[in-house]
Design a binder for these strands. Structure first.
Lengths: 353, 353
DNA sequence: GATGTGACAGAAATCGATTACTGTATATGC
DNA sequence: GCATATACAGTAATCGATTTCTGTCACATC
């Protein structure tokens, strides 16, 4: 067994420099408490020579602070969330914070378990893409002085700051684009609508269809678990089959997320139905994969990386100033036009007939 | 400003139960030290009623342990690494460990910065997909009693446990498959070979070509940064153009990773060169996206999720038993045959002429 | 009835930092 | 020349747990 060199502490350095631990602490933590130049240099020198690494546990215990923030998302394998996390992580790093990532896999119990672990670790900030969590949890977090920001999944708890995305407007925007392109029979294909976001997109779709005097066509999946990106892909394929079987003669489909759209395109192509010539496909998310397939996916961009960056920035501000204003930021959708949607029939603006 | 309820500590509970903190600790931490049944229940009851959440900082400071492990990867947005991390995170959770993820973005300085932060946070275990790190860092980690496992990127430091992937064999396997399919003019397209893994794949390719008496064709990119999955996609497209310009008449290409392969297919398709009819494409990685494109990508599977699982399991074992045997696990490649590679010319086994 | 033993509880030290106090010497003001 | 401020260093308490050491009973043993 290898002998491990005893870790050097602030007291070791104090002893070597013939000073008190207090003085060492003042030097090493850049306190503005005055320490004579000679001592300061001596201590710094010894610290460097001994490879001193401060023990944050001690520091944080005393000061009741923490430089780690918790992040809970459904699954990191979902490219949308991995972008969000990258955004969070990179801005956290710049401020010397560290990120603990947790994958709830859409399991409320797991989510609670993680939150408890994070509380025990004394995190003071939490960013959460929560699923169906009752407000109770958030109350307790607030009581413990933990700042939390909810992202993406609209959570109905009161008194909690959020960064949302305007799903309704996104749904409208997508649908209107298809309508502008001359489509009349537009289907909305969606995974199970057990999530507020999906219901919101659907609402946007409905509103846009209604205002154009068109009949909504809904094709919904029965089951759904997207902890695995492939499952969305597969439900996309299934939904495409369902659509075809329904014989609704849609000339365009709009899906609740890109992965689903990609599945749809895949299924359609493999049945020799040409996209977009025979059926146009509009996605929702704007993940990178969308531009790697053929045809490149027209979609609604939900700013993922930026959302992470913003959430982290806001969180750190909340934690450091006592700026406890509750807020809600609503990010706006953006249409990314690529090649999976094509014009149909008459002019763009004026509908035929 | 909202008043925050003071956090309840073990002393609070002790006071409420008229016992000493020692007794409370013994009950709450399931020590085998005997405590009378009546007291035990009383304490448990109070702890539950007060929503007591233990402060791990205190515990860990005293016991000099830690239940968080650090993970450093180039970038979480790379689907390969996000799978690895999911594997790590899920097995960590089962043992009540928590994961801090760090994205080094292929920057050695950032990597060092992260490692330092992790040391300060007193992590006792570290899984790292390192780039070009000198052995010095690892020495220091060992000195501090931190267990580390290197994954994926072969690191040349002595005395460190690793989980590797047999890149050479993977390269051979891919190349032989193409040869078996009757291809003779097979090009290896690669991002800049600044990473051991890519050189190893290339070596496998060379060996397989040589044993078949074929001439290697190398097409290498000039620059490369893959903190962004799109950049690999783009270099793939660039490499395809370079290949075409070189007029080497390859009937098959083998790329150093899937994302690159997808870029190649994309570029080829957009130039109306049909894959696989005119050019077969073989990838390397086995990420999910491979099966979403057209044609589905034939590739070499590098077990990502399993690699993460395995790394975490081994690490936790190392940390808990004093089982300090150094080890090296080499994961074996597996060929996934999909539709981007097609037979060419004569029989599979016997070469024409 | 002396002794040994095990069950049980508390006091106090400890982990590695920070910081409120206390104390001393030097400098400054008038 | 005396009061006061300032620079500087150390002592000791503290954060929230764990754990070693003591100590007290109660009970069994011979």
């Amino acid at each position: 067994m290898k002998r491990m060199k005893k870790k050097v502490t602030i007291h070791d350095i104090a002893r070597m420099a013939n000073v008190s631990a207090a003085t060492v602490s003042r030097v090493l933590s850049n306190s503005d408490y005055p320490v004579s130049q000679s001592l300061r240099e001596k201590i710094l020198k010894i610290a460097a020579e001994t490879n001193y690494v401060p023990n944050l546990l001690g520091k944080q215990l005393k000061k009741n602070t923490s430089t780690t923030i918790g992040v809970v998302v459904p699954s990191i394998v979902n490219p949308f969330y991995s972008s969000v996390i990258l955004g969070i992580e990179q801005t956290a790093r710049q401020r010397k914070y560290t990120v603990i990532t947790c994958n709830s896999m859409h399991d409320p119990e797991l989510e609670s378990e993680y939150i408890r672990m994070l509380m025990e670790k004394q995190v003071k900030g939490l960013i959460i893409a929560s699923i169906a969590n009752d407000g109770g949890m958030f109350k307790q977090l607030a009581d413990m002085g933990i700042h939390v920001i909810a992202i993406d999944q609209r959570v109905d708890a009161e008194g909690i700051s959020k960064i949302d995305f305007d799903f309704v407007k996104g749904g409208q925007m997508a649908t209107r684009h298809l309508i502008d392109k001359g489509h009349r029979r537009i289907a909305y294909l969606t995974a199970r609508m057990d999530r507020p976001s999906r219901r919101s997109i659907f609402r946007g779709y409905q509103e846009a269809m209604k205002e154009a005097g068109l009949e909504p066509i809904l094709v919904e999946a029965n089951a759904d678990d997207d902890h695995n990106p492939l499952s969305d892909f597969d439900t996309g394929r299934a939904l495409a089959r369902k659509l075809l079987a329904a014989k609704v003669q849609a000339t365009a489909v709009f899906t609740c997320n890109d992965m689903l759209a990609i599945g749809v395109i895949n299924e359609l192509s493999s049945r020799n139905i040409r996209v977009p010539e025979e059926i146009s496909v509009m996605g929702f998310d704007g993940i990178d994969v969308g531009q790697m397939i053929h045809p490149p996916l027209t979609t609604i961009k939900q700013p993922d990386y930026e959302m992470g960056k913003m959430a982290c920035t806001m969180l750190l501000n909340m934690m450091n100033n006592e700026n406890n204003h509750q807020f809600e930021i609503i990010l706006q959708p953006k249409l990314i036009e690529r090649q999976s949607v094509v014009s149909r029939g008459g002019h763009s603006e004026t509908s035929g007939r």
